[in-house]
Design a protein around this nucleic acid. Structure first.
Length: 102
DNA sequence: GGGTTGACAAATG
DNA sequence: CCATTTGCCAACC
């Protein structure tokens, strides 16, 4: 039962990230009340359909980088989506001090 | 039901 | 900054 409920919480949290801001996997897990579930947040996002409205691109890892292999289509896609939100990316890195939500 | 995998993270050298 | 190690936990085979 917990699994499906947590999934919803994660979706809600991701949906709550405002335009031009980002959150890390661990931060999302924590704000859902599930510290240590950073990896699970990743597995949940992976299950999303390609045409989802959820702003999954606003979710990055603790290093301020995309978690996709550099150069992959998903990687390029995520970075383009972020740039479209006026987010500046330097050498694949996003300044969490500026763009991290909360 | 044990071993592997992965859209993670923090510590260490 | 980069590489490795360790901890973590659900999904998958």
């Amino acid at each position: 039962m917990t699994s499906n409920e947590l999934d919803k919480m994660i979706w809600q949290t991701v949906a709550s990230i405002p335009f031009g801001k980002v959150m890390t996997y661990g931060q999302i897990a924590l704000s859902c009340g599930y510290p240590g579930y950073a990896r699970y947040v990743g597995t949940v996002l992976k299950k999303l359909p390609a045409d989802t409205e959820l702003p999954w691109h606003r979710v990055i890892n603790a290093q301020g980088r995309s978690s996709f292999p550099e150069g992959s289509d998903k990687y390029q896609d995520q970075l383009q989506r972020l740039r479209a939100e006026a987010i500046v990316i330097n050498n694949g890195k996003i300044a969490l001090s500026i763009y991290q939500h909360q």
